[in-house]
Design a protein around this nucleic acid. Structure first.
Length: 802
RNA sequence: GCCGGAGUGGCGGAACUGGCAGACGCCCGGGACUUAAAAUCCCGUGGGAGUAUAUCCCGUACCGGUUCGAGCCCGGUCUCCGGCACCA
């Protein structure tokens, strides 16, 4: 009989759907195991092989856990709000709801073709009113707890999307999504205070089982630094406060710099002799996009504020004050003390403007370059700090500042608050009402969900307002507080809103009373294993940790972290090793592969392609190898001999393979697990296999190629389905061989192998080694000085002329 | 510049805790089957010397070190990939 993958795959797909094989109950039997994959954005292009890799991987893990008797939750849904859908809707004049519906249908069909064991009864969609209601509810709670606020501030404006972007969405000063330039624009925005959680987001990483590079990237993004705030008196009267991580170098502060946006620029305007020049510089800096500002990295620019001097609090010296755009208004206090001897940027600026450079930490040559090493140097030219190590000096100067009331220890973070407003149509409306009398008033909970109005055009507007602002009948409302006329907020939420809590909804997706029942939350939390892309490390992964911590704080979520374990997959590249893209024409469509070779081959190959964590180029030839493998399994099943026990010739190999596959799946070393299965099939082909041998193979293969396995399973008359059968176990006693091959080396050089009984001692091994012609020849006229024996592995003879 | 990660056959990639480098697969070569092709099966396949055997030499980016023994550990260099980037 031929291996008709298309017929077989359809048959089992239908069976699994009809019998709800993968449906799971809250509180079911066995240990709970919640595995999560990032839910897809249902774009119009359909599923990509980039989806297939992580989804197949987690499906393999999940299928194994299920067979091991665990109560497995493996859900899927749709992250359906977002710009591509909206843009498609604009271009084709179709309502985004309709577009979404159609795309979801395509995606769902493709996911089902791949045989993933999702519990389809728990499907969620972020755009469903029943889902959106709870996204908006969380926003109201954030607002209630002072974590959502409206602020006018410079924001990243994508010139093509005509929309504000979060800092995390700006890559190389271009829009992460469309690649268009991003400019700075002053706008009033809804913000979420993620910075309030910075320290906890950092600290709680410690106890999580996240792969190291994710932790490192999140730590870097949060960017904690410790230092001190220091007050400098000025001749203008105001105290100028700076933040520094090097308070120890205070004696070396020879000038100060404030950001062009600093409030003192305006405050001091009248007293400045060169106000025109200063003003011109500020205007220029303000016009520059962030891109242009950072372009200027090589050349420092700035203007001295003539008429104001600051006073170095330890030396009492008057020092000049500059404005320069190398100081950022959004970090620290927007002002710095410049220590050119020990900071590269200050050094560069000082050289250009001819400012004095004082060495206060010995060890470098400050005329040549700034000396920034904090490990080795000792303090000099620093009064009471002289002779101290940098670390001691830091401590001592902070004590001094505190005693004199001139400063204090201070921690700063690079993390910024999350810009939460988007001026687009296809997102959750922010459930706020603006009342001329009462200000911003939250929509009462019983009015949720607040649905989007029907509009004629979804086009974004150039004036920076959302298209729904034009729907007056929707905008005009009454104030929930005073009952007077008021207007709804017309900004919508970013795409990251719905995905910040979806994993909670899966636990109890049809609940109308709460985002999920307490029972379900308690039972399933936290997610045991979450696999997703590295590109979400500082976006979705950080945002959702923040939301979850908040939900924990208000007693909704039972754990302080949403995900216990996070792993990440590498990208699938095109055949030539470049990124897959439509423009390169090297995109592989999973559906094509399924049609040509079947879903099982697709699954096998995508797991066999290489190290799961690393990028791997697609190879259409290598796909054939996986198809061949399944063909061989199929052929093997037609020639099995009867047998209740593993056949003696295969027994050891089977136990070894069970161990290997069991451990490799858990470590996501899918490629070597498959290699081991291939080796086992090679053994079976050579030795012949009985029914028991075959059963073990099928069980191990089942997570990878579930369709073909069920078909053979049924044909060989095993009971039930393989995918719910108990996972096989190995016997450690079966892993050791009676006779082992041992390497023989002479003076460290490999000279041959000998077969000896397992655990042979030196005498036996040496005798066997001497039996080798090569070894015997080498030993002629030599004496053995030393023998090194590694049991069952190697014997090394050190010899020299007798 | 800073922080990560990685360099192994023609290719994707294996290699436990320092112990026979190259598992498994692809490609390629040879053979069987076939009227023929495809498919399938068998054999070979790191490089070199050598007589197709035997045997020997070289080989995990580069230079050096530790060790009986290094792809793996240490010091230095080069290259590539990812992230951050005037964060004081």
């Amino acid at each position: 009989m031929k291996y008709e993958f298309d017929r077989i795959e359809k048959k089992w797909r239908d069976r699994w759907a009809a019998e709800k094989t993968y449906a799971v109950k809250t509180g079911g039997s066995g240990k709970k195991f919640y595995a999560l994959v990032e839910f897809p954005y249902p774009s119009g292009h359909g599923l990509h092989v980039g989806h297939a890799r992580p989804y197949t991987a987690m499906d393999v893990v999940v299928r194994k856990h299920r067979m091991q008797g665990e109560n497995v939750l493996f859900p899927i849904g749709w992250d359906a709000f977002g710009l591509p859908t909206e843009n498609y809707a604009i271009a084709n004049k179709i309502h985004p709801v309709k577009v979404t519906e159609e795309n979801v249908k395509v995606f769902k069909n493709q996911l089902q073709m791949l045989g993933y064991s999702f519990d389809w009864d728990r499907e969620v969609n972020t755009t469903d009113p029943g889902y959106m209601k709870w996204t908006q509810w969380i926003f109201l709670k954030l607002y209630e707890h002072g974590l959502a606020y409206k602020a006018k501030m410079p924001v990243n404006w994508c010139t093509s999307c005509k929309c504000v972007l979060a800092n995390e969405e700006v890559v190389d000063n271009a829009c992460e999504r469309c690649g268009s330039p991003v400019v700075r624009k002053e706008k009033s925005q809804w913000m979420l205070k993620i910075t309030e959680y910075a320290q906890r987001l950092l600290d709680d990483l410690e106890d999580l089982d996240f792969i190291e590079r994710v932790k490192i990237q999140q730590r870097n993004w949060i960017g904690r630094s410790t230092g001190a705030n220091v007050d400098f008196a000025t001749t203008a009267g105001e105290t100028l406060q700076v933040y520094t991580t090097r308070p120890d170098t205070l004696f070396g502060a020879t000038y100060m710099v404030i950001a062009p946006e600093h409030e003192y620029v305006k405050k001091w305007a009248d007293g400045l002799q060169n106000f025109k020049e200063v003003q011109a510089y500020c205007e220029q800096a303000g016009r520059k996009s962030d891109f242009e500002r950072t372009e200027m990295v090589k050349e420092k620019t700035g203007v001295e504020l003539k008429g104001v001097r600051a006073i170095n609090p330890v030396t009492g010296n008057e020092i000049p004050v500059f404005i320069s755009d190398y100081v950022l208004s959004t970090y620290g206090t927007g002002a710095i003390m410049a220590v050119p001897g020990h900071d590269a940027r200050d050094w560069e600026f000082a050289k250009k403007f001819g400012l004095p450079i004082i060495e206060v930490v010995a060890g470098g040559n400050v005329e040549e370059a700034a000396f920034t090493d904090v490990e080795t140097g000792k303090m000099v030219n620093s009064g009471f700090l002289n002779g101290l190590e940098v670390a001691e000096a830091k401590k001592k100067i902070v004590e001094w500042l505190v005693a004199k009331k001139l400063g204090e220890a201070k921690v700063n973070y690079k993390l910024r608050d999350w810009v939460f407003s988007r001026q687009r149509y296809w997102g959750e409306p922010i459930p706020m009402v603006h009342c001329p009398k009462c200000g911003y008033v939250p929509l009462p909970e019983d009015q949720l969900p607040l649905s989007l109005p029907e509009v004629e055009s979804y086009e974004p507007t150039d004036n920076g307002e959302s298209p729904i602002a034009a729907i007056r009948s929707w905008v005009e409302t009454t104030c929930p507080h005073c009952g007077g006329p008021a207007e709804r907020e017309t900004d919508t939420m970013p795409q990251w809103a719905g995905s910040s809590w979806y994993f909670l909804r899966y636990m109890d997706p049809h609940n109308n009373e709460a985002l999920a029942s307490k029972e379900a939350l308690d039972y399933w939390s936290p997610v045991d294993w979450y696999n997703g892309g590295m590109e979400h490390t500082t976006l979705h992964l950080l945002y959702s940790r923040f939301w979850h911590k908040f939900l924990y704080d208000i007693g909704v979520a039972p754990t302080k972290e949403p995900y216990q374990k996070r792993t990440s997959h590498g990208m699938i590249l095109g055949e030539g090793g470049e990124k897959m893209s439509k423009s390169r024409g090297n995109v592989v469509n999973p559906t094509d592969i399924i049609q040509q070779y079947g879903a099982d081959t697709m699954r096998m190959y995508i797991m066999f392609i290489g190290d799961f964590e690393k990028a791997a180029p697609w190879s259409s030839n290598a796909v054939k190898g996986c198809k061949r493998f399944l063909d061989r399994v199929w052929n093997l099943s037609e020639s099995v001999e009867p047998g209740e026990k593993y056949s003696p010739s295969n027994e050891k190999a089977i136990h070894k393979t069970i161990k290997k596959v069991t451990e490799d799946i858990e470590a996501m070393k899918f490629n070597t697990a498959i290699a081991a299965l291939m080796a086992l099939v090679n053994d079976f082909t050579a030795n012949g296999a009985n029914k028991a041998d075959m059963q073990a193979l099928l069980l191990l293969l089942s997570p990878f190629a579930p369709h073909i396995v069920e078909e053979i399973w049924e044909w060989l008359d095993f009971s039930g389905m393989a995918c719910v059968h108990a996972w096989p176990t190995w016997d450690d006693g079966m892993l050791t061989e009676d006779v082992v091959q041992m390497a023989v080396q002479i003076n460290g050089k490999f000279r041959g192998t000998v077969s000896v009984p397992a655990d042979s001692g030196e005498e036996v091994a040496l005798a066997a080694a001497k039996g080798l012609d090569k070894v015997a020849r080498q030993l002629e006229g030599m004496q053995i000085v030393k023998t090194i024996l590694v049991k069952n592995k190697l014997l090394n003879l050190l010899i020299r002329p007798a």
